[in-house]
Each structure stands twice: as structure tokens, then as C-alpha cells.
Design a protein around this nucleic acid. Structure first.
Length: 653
DNA sequence: CGGCCGTACTG
DNA sequence: CAGTACG
DNA sequence: GCCG
């Protein structure tokens, strides 16, 4: 569309930003302020035309005519041409200005895929014939061959041997994501069933929230007028990125035939810094682009969540280009989780998310430094790992006895850092010691945690999660058929196994009071009598507090002899179901990111809804409750936050 | 340098 | 209240 | 640990 534009070829038009209405939301506009010159610089070729258009949508300006004053930042070169062709055709006797970055066609789409400006110096973005290739290639040449063998044997304990053979990328059977409850749509397709339709809103930019009409999937019926809200662009952007993920970079070598292969991945490109010692690119796309929740974190087709370790160590395919780095940093992260402060651990987890989304091997500190959430210190560690396959600092922690004991004790339900530290200091060197230590008064929960230590530590196969959910569902419906049960947690995110079972329980039209009394006074006793529920850990035990209980933790087992499993019930009125789904689907980093974003926008997000005008005092201390903005619809909450919709399976940070 | 989510339950 | 827990 |  826009391209035709040579019509008004005034100077001004030279670099006019296309009038595309379809700009992607701010946060994703990674090419903002960048000026692309394509080579050849026309959109005759369908593939290139698509690349140009998409680049523009991501914020790039397509410079139509070569002009030294146009501030061209990047030249995206057709794969059939060489570096030497450029000055010839452009009649540049002095060659290409040094500040202009020259990359091939693949660069832009890679950037979009990873939602960031990648290092243009990487060898696979080099145009044939590029001078200094040696230097630019730094990470391919020798380094690449040096690449860490993927024998990642570093695990500290035998525990996490859940190594899973990398399977073909078969999509999960979405229809059973929701447990036995056939009534709900499948989650990943989006909640067809939005709870609490429009009851709650008001005004203003209330989007035309799919009231009556079901399909939010279809199209976002956003109020076009809403100044701050994204409408179609948002969704389109997501789809675009999602599409990019699955469509291999097109190989449209075909001549400029007009049979467009199909819309091509966008081309975007550029990295602002040539010899980037710095990562300016990192931060200036949008005020909110640094939130994890703004970026897609698609889980591998069958991802497995962390195993024995507390926080981060997700099993990643050994084939991942940065497997070694990720593995070692995960271990280091877990170490900080149990030993030190949670903040360092949090920082590692954010960095790990970035690394997992990095499609290419990282080999140098400078390269790593450009990535989000990776600073100088982590960058140095990464380089150390890349070059030595080991991380000195970490190896000592593996053998530290106190550390290992802490890890052991922290694995007990209801034992945190405070208790675990005490136990170690008391001289306990095993769980048996703990049980016999005279100075230690175990709580009931801790006793259960110790007795079933291995059970709770074990992963629950996806199908068992489904079965356990089905049992609860059936029992509840025997009491009142109108109840609905949704399995949340990592199950809803598509994990092949889970650490526990998370169930959201609701009944359309019913009060919280009714839901609570039915569950606590009828369902729980029934399941206990059947020996399905084996222990009550928290929630509704104390009759005093039980009147406002909304969350219930316990242990259950599929059969009397099967391992005990942790199970959590969340009781939710339908008008809060959207917020509850977000909360109980997670993951935790994703939730925290969403909540932080909300608070930065003057709102507050919790498991009951999204609130506006949440007055906050110093820091972000809550002062006022705020008005409910949206609670029944997951999509509604995303929209009000300006966050592109994310399927549950894409919420793995 | 300070902030790093917002809540529910227990004793 | 601190501690632990939930995502 | 990282970020603003």
C-alpha cells in the first residue's frame, strides 16, 4: 500500500513514515526511530514488499531514496546481492558510510521474533562480501566451533533427571487442557467462556467487550476511540509474531515473479550499534517494553517445569543453542533462591527467560550484555561459561554442605529459609535428625511434608493431573451439577507434568458464600471420606477464618497406594473468574510482571480483578482499593493493561 | 541508590 | 506480627 | 542480580 508513494516526491516525502494505520503497539515497535533502506529499494518483489511493510509496522521508516542526509540506519540487502553491489548501484564512490549497518534479509524477522534489536554483527546477518568479516564474525568463527558440547552433566543431584527427549513439535491436545470439564472451551484457544460478562464496567472506554457475542477470539472489539487502548493492532501484532514463529523464513528465491509466495516475514532490521559495547537498543522502545509480560515466551511444545529445584531450572532441550549457559545459570539461580536473597534469584530468572528466547549461541560478554536483564556481571559469567563450559563461582556451592542441607530442608512443605536455617544451625544433618531434634517443634504441615517428602517432590504426569481434576469435578457435580472446575497452573500452560494440581472452582451466578460452603462443608468431607483427600494443609481448617476462605491447600492421591499429590483449590465467583484464571495460571514471573505493569499504570491487579485509581503512597503502598475495572474476562484485563493477548501456553517466563 | 507482586493462611 | 504459601 |  504505502509504497506507491513516490507521487509526492518532495523532499519531505523522502522519508515519510508510511501512513500505515497498522502500527504495532508502542511497546513492540522495536524499530522506532530507525530508517531502513532496502536493496533493491522497491517493493516489486512480493517478499520484499511484505518485509518492508512489516518493518514499517514495527516502527521503521522506509527511506525511499538514497540520501546521505536521510539518517539511514540500516540497509537490508537482498540475498542475491553482495556488499560490493551496494556502492556500485548507489553510486557511492566513497563506499557505504560507516555508520550505516548492512544486514541481510533475515535480520529483521529475527529481531521481530525475539522482540528486540539483535546484534547485527553476527555472522548470519552478514551480507556476502562484507569487509572485516573476520571481526564481525567473531562469534561464528572460532568461537562457534568452540561451542560447548552439549553434555550438560552438571547437575548437583540425581534428581533432575527428567531429561525429556525432545519431541516433535506437536501441539498439545488442546481439548483436554481443561480437565474433565467438558463444558469449558479449551484454554489455549482462549476462553471462549468469559465469566462475568459485562456486569462490571462502566463507561468510558469500555471496550465493546464481547458481550453477547462470544468470540473474543475473532476480533477484538475494542472501542476504537479509546485513546490509550490498543485495538486490532495489538491482536494483529501478536498473530504476526506468532506466525513468524512457525513460518520458516521464506525462501523466495524465485525471481520477482508476482506469485507471491505468501506474506513474508517482516523484515526489519537493524541494530543501532555497530560495535555495541552498550545496549542502548535495550531500553528505548517503550516505557513498558521491559516488562516480561509484554513479550511472548512460548513454551516448548511439551515443556516441563522445574523439577526438584526451587525456582528456575526448567528442563530445556539439549539442543538449545545456549543450553550450557542456561543450565549453569539455573543452578546458580537456585542456589541464590535457597541461600541468599530472593532478589538475586529473581534477576537470574529474568535473565534466563531472555536467554531461553535467544535463538543463537551467545559467546561473548559484549554480546550477552545487549540482552534484556543481563548486566555486566551476568555477561561476564556467561562468557566464562561459553569459553570454559564451567562456572567457577558455582562449583563451590555444589559441595557446600550447609547449602545442600538447606536445599534438603527447604523441600519440606511449610519450611522456608527461616526454619531451614535454624535446623541447619541446630546441627540437623538429615530429615531424621529434624524429627528427633528436641529443640524443634514441627507443625502438622511440616510433619506431612517430611512424611511425604519424595511424593511432593515428584512430578505429576499431565494425565494424572487431568484425572485428579476429574475426580474433584465429578464429586462436586454430584453435589451440584452447575459447578465448574478448571485446572490451572502449569497444566493450563500446557506442561507435560506438574508439581501440583491447581483447581479453580466456580458456579455461574452463585455467591462466594455458597461456593465456599458447598466446597468446605460438602465436597471436602466427601473427598476425605473417599480417601481421595489425604490431608488438609491450609485453608478452611480454622472455623473462625473459614468464613472467608477462598483458597485451600491439601494433599490427595489417585488411589490409596498412589503417591500423595499437592492440590490447591481456589474458590471464585464467576465475576472474578478472569482475574482468578490469570492468577492461577501464572507463571509467577508472568503474574508479577503483569501486576507491576498495572501498578506503574496506576492500577492494581490481583486475583479478584483489575482496579483503577488505586491510590498509592510512598513506594507503591496501597492506600485505596480503587474501582474495579475488569474481573470476569482474562482478555478484558489484558486489554485494559495494554498487553497483547497471551495464550496460557505463552505465559511461561 | 532503592525497588523488585499482591495476596491468603497459620500460629 | 513473621513466616510460608500461591501463581 | 538488574533496572531506572
Amino acid at each position: 500500500m504505502a509504497s506507491k508513494g513516490t507521487c509526492a516526491k518532495t523532499k519531505a516525502s523522502k522519508r515519510r513514515r508510511s501512513s500505515l494505520p497498522n502500527l504495532v503497539p508502542d511497546a513492540q515497535r522495536i524499530f522506532a526511530n530507525l530508517n531502513f533502506y532496502f536493496f533493491p529499494n522497491n517493493d516489486i518483489h512480493a517478499g520484499r514488499k511484505a518485509r518492508i511493510r512489516v518493518s514499517e509496522r514495527y516502527g521503521a521508516t522506509w527511506v525511499r531514496d538514497w540520501d546521505a542526509t536521510a539518517g539511514i540506519t540500516h540497509i537490508i540487502v537482498d540475498h542475491r546481492l553482495t556488499y560490493q553491489d551496494i556502492p556500485v548501484y548507489l553510486k557511492l564512490p566513497e563506499g557505504i558510510p560507516p555508520e550505516v549497518i548492512v544486514v541481510n534479509e533475515e535480520y529483521p524477522s529475527d529481531c521481530i521474533r525475539s522482540q528486540m534489536i539483535l546484534d547485527a554483527a553476527q555472522s548470519h546477518y552478514q551480507v556476502p562480501g562484507t569487509p572485516n568479516a573476520a571481526k564481525a564474525t567473531s562469534n561464528t568463527g572460532p568461537v562457534a566451533s568452540t561451542r560447548i558440547p552439549s553434555q550438560v552433566d552438571v547437575e548437583p543431584k540425581t534428581k533432575q533427571n527428567n531429561q525429556v527427549a525432545r519431541r516433535s513439535r506437536s501441539p498439545l491436545p488442546e481439548h483436554d487442557l481443561k480437565g474433565s470439564t467438558a463444558t469449558h472451551g479449551d484454554p489455549s484457544e482462549s476462553d471462549r467462556v468469559e465469566y462475568g460478562k459485562s456486569s462490571s464496567h462502566d463507561t468510558g472506554c469500555e471496550t465493546g467487550q464481547a458481550d453477547g457475542e462470544t468470540d473474543e477470539t475473532k476480533l477484538p472489539q475494542t472501542a476504537p476511540a479509546a485513546p490509550d487502548k490498543y485495538g486490532y493492532e495489538l491482536i494483529e501484532a501478536i498473530q504476526e509474531v506468532a506466525a513468524l514463529r512457525d513460518i520458516p523464513l521464506e525462501l523466495d528465491d524465485v525471481e520477482e515473479s508476482d506469485s507471491p509466495p505468501q506474506d513474508e516475514p517482516p523484515s526489519d532490521s537493524d541494530s543501532e550499534d555497530h560495535r555495541p559495547a552498550h545496549k542502548k537498543s535495550k531500553s528505548n522502545h517503550s516505557k513498558f517494553s521491559n516488562f516480561q509480560c509484554m513479550h511472548s515466551h512460548p513454551a516448548p511444545a511439551n515443556y516441563s517445569t522445574a523439577t526438584a529445584t526451587p525456582s528456575s531450572s526448567t528442563i530445556i532441550p539439549p539442543s538449545h543453542p545456549n543450553a550450557q549457559i542456561i543450565t549453569l545459570l539455573s543452578l546458580q539461580c537456585d542456589y541464590y533462591t535457597r541461600i541468599q536473597d530472593p532478589w538475586r534469584s529473581l534477576a537470574y530468572r529474568k535473565a534466563l527467560t531472555t536467554l531461553k528466547n535467544q535463538p543463537h549461541p551467545i559467546t561473548t560478554a559484549a554480546q550477552a550484555r545487549q540482552l534484556r536483564h543481563i548486566g555486566d556481571r551476568l555477561a561476564r559469567k556467561i562468557e566464562e561459561i561459553a569459553t570454559t563450559s564451567r562456572l567457577c563461582r558455582f562449583e563451590s556451592t555444589l559441595t557446600d554442605p550447609r547449602d545442600r542441607l538447606l536445599q534438603l530442608f527447604l523441600g519440606v512443605y511449610d519450611v522456608g529459609l527461616a526454619q531451614a536455617s535454624k535446623w541447619v544451625d541446630f546441627g540437623c544433618r538429615s530429615l531424621a535428625d529434624v524429627q528427633t531434634c528436641p529443640q524443634i517443634a514441627l507443625t502438622d504441615n511440616q510433619r506431612v511434608g517430611i512424611a511425604h517428602y519424595d511424593d511432593f517432590q515428584a512430578r505429576i504426569p499431565r494425565d494424572e493431573v487431568r484425572q485428579l481434576g476429574a475426580i474433584v469435578t465429578n464429586a462436586l457435580r454430584a453435589i451440584d451439577p452447575a459447578f465448574e472446575v478448571t485446572i490451572g497452573g502449569s497444566y493450563r500452560r500446557g506442561a507435560r507434568d506438574s508439581g501440583d494440581v491447581d483447581l479453580l472452582i466456580t458456579k455461574p451466578g452463585a455467591s462466594t458464600r455458597y461456593i465456599r460452603s458447598t466446597v468446605l462443608e460438602q465436597l471436602v468431607p466427601e473427598l476425605t471420606a473417599r480417601a481421595f483427600l489425604r490431608a488438609r494443609l491450609a485453608g478452611g481448617k480454622d472455623s473462625v477464618h473459614a468464613v472467608e476462605t477462598t483458597k485451600c491447600h491439601g494433599a490427595c492421591s489417585l488411589t490409596p497406594t498412589a503417591p500423595w499429590r499437592r492440590i490447591d483449590l481456589l474458590l471464585v465467583p464467576e465475576e472474578e473468574m478472569g482475574a482468578a484464571l490469570i492468577y492461577f495460571t501464572g507463571n509467577d514471573i508472568f503474574n508479577r510482571s503483569l501486576r507491576l505493569l498495572a501498578s506503574r499504570k496506576g492500577m492494581r491487579l490481583n486475583q479478584r480483578g483489575l482496579f483503577e485509581d488505586a491510590m498509592r503512597g510512598r513506594g507503591r503502598m496501597k492506600v485505596t482499593e480503587g474501582r474495579l475495572v475488569e474481573g470476569g474476562s482474562e482478555r478484558g484485563i489484558f486489554e485494559r493493561l495494554g498487553v497483547p493477548w497471551r495464550e496460557p501456553t505463552e505465559r511461561v517466563c
